[in-house]
Amino acid sequence: MLLGGKDKPDPAFLEAVVRASGQKTLAHCYQCGKCTAGCPTTFAMDYKPNRIIRMLQLGRKEEVLGSRTIWVCAACFTCSTRCPCNIDVAQVMDSLRVIARREGKTGLGRGVVLFNDLFLLSVRRNGRVFETGLALSFNLRRKTFFRDAELGRFMFTRGKLRFTPDRPKGVRELARLFAKAEEKVEE
């Protein structure tokens, strides 16, 4: 099935992923399946982790970047801990998320990407994550206005919700880090 897909093989993609994830090679994967056996979120994946590695070996860029797998990976590093070929599978997944974002292929990861964007926006503005603001803006943007309303009420009564962000002085330094990151993406 992997040989007959509609996706045209792109060998340069494998090279790009190997480089971005800091791996020596992905060629040594012999499909033992340990990464998949230990993965806690395979039930929600379209392609299991070992198949993603195989698809990368075959240069199947579109299918990999378009998969749901990369967005439901919990980044728990069980796969990386157990791989007999020392492939840091979790790091590969991370690099795939970064590449998918840069190429605007985040269709199946919309919720995760929105959360990550709002999280970083909060860090950029405040230096530290303002949890209350983050949760509210996420719900606003997803139009799920009352999600967690009950939980929010409970947290409020226990003093676990802040109403104002805590802005350390270093926010200005962080602005420079964020600007540099944007510059690097454009390079």
Partner: peptide
């Protein structure tokens, strides 16, 4: 003093530099 957020999974899933 003046510590900032570590970036958590939002940063490492988005930008390797950050």
């Amino acid at each position: 003093p003046d510590w900032n957020c570590c970036g958590a999974s939002a940063a490492h899933s988005t930008d390797p530099f950050l």
